[in-house]
Amino acid sequence: MRKWRNAVVTAAWVAVGTAAGALGAWQLASADGGGDAAHSRPLDEGAVRRALAKAADAPPVRPATPTSPPTSARPSPSSSPSGERSTVRFTGGSATVECRPDGTVRLISWSPADGFHIDDDVERGPAPVVRLEAEPADDDEQEDLPYEVRCAGATPRVKVAPDMDDD
């Protein structure tokens, strides 16, 4: 009788632990809800393409005030894909860029890597070179990582750039 009771108690503990784990996994999986919430991890290329397609169908996002910088990495609905889009990866994150037939590049969207954020002073283009800067979350320990992206034909090239700060 005692062995049977131990087996029942063990089975109950296993069932409770499994249910708690399943509930936690379900909450994590449904936390974003598919909305426009910010992501805490970089998006893969397929997720970036889906988000861009969804954003192209949405009405334009207006800044809160005329002097506030844009807080969104969405393309404007008026921009048409006139070039080849690619995702480039770098130490501080990843970015989707468009290499245009005229030799210019346009920064479409970006996503920081864990432990980084992208500085607000982003040069999106279209231009011969676009720039962005990944800043470590712990600014005292690591240097900022400035990058520039150019296109060689339809192929984007990312490299470390001179520091963009004026200080």
Rank of each mutant, 00 (worst) to 15 (best):
123 E>A: 15
11 A>Q: 08
97 V>Y: 09
18 T>Y: 06
51 A>F: 03
142 Q>C: 00
12 A>N: 07
98 E>F: 01
147 Y>N: 07
101 P>A: 15
30 S>F: 08
31 A>R: 12
159 K>Q: 15
43 L>S: 08
162 P>F: 04
65 T>F: 03
17 G>H: 01
103 G>H: 09
100 R>H: 06
148 E>R: 05
24 G>D: 12
20 A>H: 06
150 R>E: 04
63 P>F: 06
155 T>P: 00
106 R>K: 09
63 P>T: 12
58 A>H: 07
26 W>A: 13
11 A>K: 04
52 L>Q: 13
151 C>E: 01
163 D>H: 12
67 T>K: 03
87 T>F: 01
36 D>N: 15
143 E>K: 13
63 P>G: 06
46 G>Y: 10
95 A>G: 10
53 A>R: 11
64 A>M: 08
6 N>G: 06
36 D>I: 05
40 S>E: 14
62 R>D: 06
62 R>K: 11
59 P>Q: 06
24 G>K: 12
138 D>V: 14
21 G>R: 05
141 E>M: 09
132 L>Q: 08
100 R>Q: 12
91 T>W: 03
60 P>H: 02
121 D>Y: 10
42 P>Q: 13
127 A>C: 06
109 S>D: 14
52 L>T: 02
99 C>K: 04
127 A>G: 09
59 P>D: 10
97 V>N: 11
122 V>K: 07
13 W>E: 03
13 W>L: 15
4 W>L: 15
145 L>H: 03
16 V>Q: 00
136 P>R: 04
7 A>C: 10
26 W>C: 01
110 W>T: 02
25 A>N: 10
137 A>H: 10
128 P>H: 13
60 P>G: 05
46 G>D: 15
85 R>P: 03
86 S>R: 13
122 V>I: 11
64 A>K: 09
103 G>C: 09
152 A>C: 00
53 A>C: 01
46 G>A: 14
107 L>H: 06
147 Y>D: 01
95 A>D: 07
129 V>M: 03
13 W>F: 15
132 L>P: 08
152 A>L: 02
145 L>E: 08
84 E>W: 03
143 E>C: 02
30 S>R: 12
52 L>A: 09
161 A>W: 00
117 H>Q: 08
122 V>E: 04
85 R>G: 02
104 T>D: 09
115 G>W: 05
127 A>R: 05
1 M>N: 12
166 D>P: 04
74 R>P: 01
117 H>Y: 14
112 P>L: 03
57 D>K: 15
86 S>M: 02
137 A>S: 15
115 G>F: 09
81 P>L: 09
138 D>Q: 10
159 K>C: 00
70 P>H: 12
16 V>M: 05
90 F>A: 01
114 D>S: 12
49 R>E: 15
152 A>T: 04
106 R>G: 04
27 Q>K: 11
94 S>D: 15
18 T>V: 13
113 A>L: 05
10 T>A: 15
54 K>M: 04
86 S>G: 06
94 S>G: 11
92 G>E: 02
69 P>I: 10
15 A>W: 02
36 D>A: 14
63 P>S: 13
49 R>P: 00
76 S>H: 13
28 L>Q: 13
44 D>I: 12
111 S>F: 14
152 A>V: 04
